[in-house]
């Protein structure tokens, strides 16, 4: 688990005290991440925009729910955005109405330093994903980006449910190890 940075501790304090500039900093830093994740899971631009707004509004209203001593803001926002996106998909069965994903928009982050870090890190994560056994990568992709439960993943991949669970856990643990070995967490 990566400790939150000094900036995250500072922005957390300022959000709690009602400083809207702190909200702007968080948005500039992480909106591409949140929007990209929601868009990838839901496949619907309007819904991804709504969820992105809701996630940052939740941060604004409930900054106290984020505990920087327990982890970084990226993980917290990512967990929030992913859960809401998956809820949306399952509730609305949006997968049936999924529009074709727009693929020509470059990954971006607003802050120059964060942009550099995020791009480098994203490359390392892509590389780490490539090193995963295909069966683990497929299980993670189907669950994380496809919004499927491990049972549904088991059906899709035609494997026992226990195997689906194991692949998800082992695959994530392996990515975590790779990132830790490369010191990615220190930048998170």
């Amino acid at each position: 688990m990566t400790a939150a940075t000094e900036w995250e501790h500072d922005v957390h304090r300022r959000l709690i005290s009602g400083d809207q500039d702190a909200l702007g900093e968080c948005y500039d830093q992480f909106s591409s991440f949140v929007y990209g994740l929601s868009q990838r899971v839901i496949g619907d631009r309007r819904a991804a925009e709504d969820i992105t707004q809701d996630v940052f509004l939740y941060l604004w209203e409930r900054a106290d729910a984020f505990d920087p001593d327990r982890g970084g803001l990226r993980t917290w926002l990512g967990t929030l955005a992913h859960r809401r996106s998956v809820d949306y998909v399952r509730r609305e069965e949006a997968r049936r109405r999924r529009t074709e994903r727009v693929g020509n928009e470059a990954p971006t982050t607003p802050d120059v330093e964060e942009m550099a870090v995020a791009i480098v890190t994203a490359e390392r994560v892509r590389a780490a994903l490539e090193t995963l056994p295909t069966e683990q990568r497929d299980a993670i992709h189907l669950a994380y980006f496809g919004g499927k439960t491990y049972r549904e993943v088991a059906v899709v991949l035609n494997i026992p449910e226990g195997t689906a669970k194991s692949r998800m856990r082992l695959g994530l643990a392996r990515i975590a190890s790779v990132l830790e070995q490369e010191g990615v967490g220190q930048w998170a």
Partner: peptide, 14 residues
């Protein structure tokens, strides 16, 4: 945290 970094590979400007 690992999952969040997987998501970072999908960053897309809103």
């Amino acid at each position: 945290e690992a999952a969040a970094w997987i998501a970072a590979t999908e960053a897309l400007a809103p």
